[in-house]
Design a protein around this nucleic acid. Structure first.
Lengths: 350, 350
DNA sequence: CTGAAAGCGCTTACAG
DNA sequence: CTGAAAGCGCTTACAG
């Protein structure tokens, strides 16, 4: 059904070169033949073989995206955003999970190198020791945009959220609701965001002159998607927290998945949310508004993150050919977040 | 860094052909040279250019997956399952949303045809009038596996769930809890599953000798991801249902997203779940166990569906070359479902 | 304004 | 057991 350029050339009685030029609107072909060929192409359903063209140009017109675990609610909207702009701009999207495993991540990247992907968007696994696969990719001239958390030892473009401001706002809100004993639970595994959220939290406390005992801020060994195999680590941390003097009246948890785990832990201890303990999360996953009580949390514009990342990436890909001077140098975008007030925080007056 | 076969040939002092054969373990190359070349390949980081190989063979070593909306909780685990087996079996995964729009679906498929994808897994948009793009793809010899709901007018392999049995079990459970007035809400937009679930529901009622007034089964014009823009249609249906005589004591809703909408509608009417109305869903999205009250629903093994679909697809792709007689004829797998009993159903005794 | 020719990096009959 | 050669479907200088 679909025919090749060679066949079309025969039909039109011209050379393949002429067809090629005509189809790409090259001005050196006369308007007359150009139109004739284009209409013949439509008629005979001649679609250029992207594979062949890509092979010639050493690229694939595809971008790749790697995330730790697509089942984790934070990533689908990101992928959505990426896919939409990629499709609009004529790129296909390859997708893979890294399963939070450095070896899988490296293997996937090597596969993509063999496939000559044009660029990569990655939500990297947390705290990986060896990032050499990214360097290899860069050495091949493939642009990389990193999402959510930065990579150690590798300079790339970056799209993230204002973790500091979000954490600051969340903590201030808790303070404004009368809380002073605000504990903080973080995942150790995403160092980059963890650090920023933690300092937003500390600074907000400091600004209100609140000093908290050592141990009010705990780090949990949180590995992957909490929804698929709760670790139990949160449970222990929450228990330890509630044995402190004074007891926390609020928890600022550094991501929604952890917050959901905390809900369970808090209840197992016999406390009610928000009557006995208030909880604020970070992310605003779809699910967060449906849990009981609906979680007050910092909204991250995930879909937007994907769109921005894809646009930056494709700009880079397409600037590569031209002598655009801006091509060098890394772009870094920090998107704004917003506190979504729901039902997991109560006013307190002790 | 990474070198081509040609360069490796020069280094090894053999022809490219020999390198090619050696790298693919062709027995016509002596064990000695084969090993020598393979170790040189490792040393010099010679990776075959999949793009070039694919171009020669007219394929891409990639499979594509198209779903209506990856943000909808049912699809991420499916994608996960597909991606895992694809990676294991040496395929890359291309991903796109159809946004439940026939034109987008067609456009994406045309793009994939140009990219010479080796096969397609698709969760088709509901009730599309024109499926010619699938036929075109098949005419090019590209195998298709359809997931969840079947395609009209196109014969393909299929992986789905036992919708009938699931709906039957859900309804029977409600009956066993003392309910007789069990209404049914379905989405009109996924005709295939809707019909099967509806007949499971009807048959279960019939078997218990329950006859319900006309209008106890309503169809809602449910378009896309309910999580992203509730339509309000459910709200009206629920309202209408609750004005009926006798009033329903239970709702069997044909998917979880609709069930979540129903939760809201029920509450806006001043009823409590499950005290006043019991609700059962279908899908068992991640989110369903976290809503309030946790939803009793029919669990679909989404990740498994993805794995099964990917294996069927890749089997077909790889059988194409061989003279496997089984290559013709469509495979159809129906996976078992399981009722997950949670907290959204109460016993009733009227 | 159009065409002939080389070449992108592989694979595969075909010789030797 | 190994190599020379053609070819997959395009694009791109280079002639004319």
């Amino acid at each position: 059904m679909a025919i090749s350029m060679r066949q079309l050339a025969k039909i039109a009685g011209v050379s393949v070169a002429t067809v090629s030029y005509a189809l790409r609107d090259d001005p050196r072909i006369s308007a007359a033949t150009r139109q004739r060929i284009q209409s013949l192409a439509r008629k005979h359903n001649c679609r250029v073989n992207v594979q062949a063209r890509g092979f010639f140009e050493g690229r694939s017109f595809s971008i790749a995206v790697i995330v730790p675990d697509i089942r984790c609610g934070f990533y689908p909207p990101i992928l959505q955003g990426i896919e939409r702009v990629a499709a609009d701009r004529g790129y296909t999207v390859c997708f893979a999970n890294s399963y939070n495993d450095p070896q899988t991540e490296a293997k996937v990247i090597h596969t993509y190198m063999q496939h000559r992907i044009d660029g990569l968007i990655v939500a990297p696994i947390s705290e990986s020791a060896d990032n050499s696969h990214f360097l290899e990719l860069q050495r091949e001239g493939v642009p990389i945009v990193v999402i959510d958390r930065r990579l150690d030892f590798v300079e790339t473009d970056f799209v993230g959220c204002d973790d500091y401001a979000g954490a600051f706002a969340a903590t201030e809100y808790l303070i404004s609701m009368g809380h002073r004993y605000i504990a903080h639970i973080t995942g150790s595994r995403d160092a980059w965001t963890t650090i920023r959220r933690k300092s937003g939290y500390s600074d907000a406390l400091k600004r209100s002159g609140i000093e908290l005992p050592e141990g009010y801020s705990v780090e949990v060994d949180y590995l992957t998607n909490a929804l698929h195999g709760f670790s139990g680590a949160v449970s222990e941390s929450v228990k330890a927290l509630f044995q402190m003097e004074p007891r926390p009246t609020a928890l600022f948890v550094s991501n929604d998945l952890l917050a959901i785990e905390a809900y369970g832990a808090i209840r197992r201890l016999g406390y009610r949310i928000p009557d006995d303990v208030s909880v604020v999360g970070f992310a605003d996953l779809d699910i967060s508004q449906y849990i009981d009580p609906p979680l007050t949390t910092v909204h991250q514009p995930a879909e937007k993150m994907g769109e921005v990342a894809a646009n930056i990436l494709i700009d880079k890909i397409e600037a590569k050919g031209s002598s655009d001077t801006e091509y060098r140098g890394c772009i870094s975008k920090t998107l704004e977040v917003e506190l979504k007030i729901r039902k997991s925080v109560a006013r307190v007056s002790r």
